[in-house]
């Protein structure tokens, strides 16, 4: 059995949410649907930080290492002096590593977001149970008599 409250404004929505949380409804059973991010609701229901940052950090570090490893590997695999530069021209390779840091970091952040938000939701794509609506909604899943 689910209970559903729907509001037109953020204020009413937040007031009701606060009331529900204070009245002892388990936070895990509450879900909210809002037309834009409401950070107050996020803080009330789950004040942990989004793990997207770990994906991003891991991707960025991997990109940086990959950038240096790749360029250094290629010049060592056939050492050819060009323009009188050193074989391992770290200064030049910084640029490749810099770009790959951003590229990998950005892509893993996106992948992390998709994974953590459980997107894409295939069953929601064509026959949505919940639509993304202009209303502020609170849904409580209660275990009731079946």
């Amino acid at each position: 059995m689910t209970e559903r409250f729907s509001f037109d404004t953020k204020k009413e929505f937040l007031d009701k949410l606060e009331e529900l949380v204070k009245s002892g409804v388990s936070k895990k059973k509450i879900d909210t649907y809002t037309p834009y991010p409401v950070h107050e609701a996020e803080e009330m229901l789950d004040d942990t930080q989004s793990p997207v940052r770990f994906f991003t950090g891991a991707g960025a570090i991997a990109g940086c290492i990959a950038g240096f490893a790749f360029t250094i590997y290629t010049v060592l695999s056939w050492p050819l002096v060009t323009g009188g530069k050193e074989i391992v021209s770290v200064t030049a390779f910084i640029i490749i590593a810099y770009e790959l840091t951003i590229l990998f970091g950005g892509l893993t952040a996106f992948a992390g977001f998709m994974f953590l938000s459980r997107l894409p939701v295939f069953k929601n794509v064509f026959s949505p149970e919940v639509e993304f609506s202009p209303k502020f909604e609170i849904v409580i899943k209660r275990e009731g008599p079946k």
């Binding site: 909210t32 609701a41 996020e42 997207v52 998709m114 894409p120």
Partner: peptide, 22 residues
Amino acid sequence: LSLGWVGSFRQWKHYSKLYMFL
């Protein structure tokens, strides 16, 4: 294209973080 987006607070939470990182 909208990937079944519903705007739940968990989605928005990760979304805001992702947007900030990008």
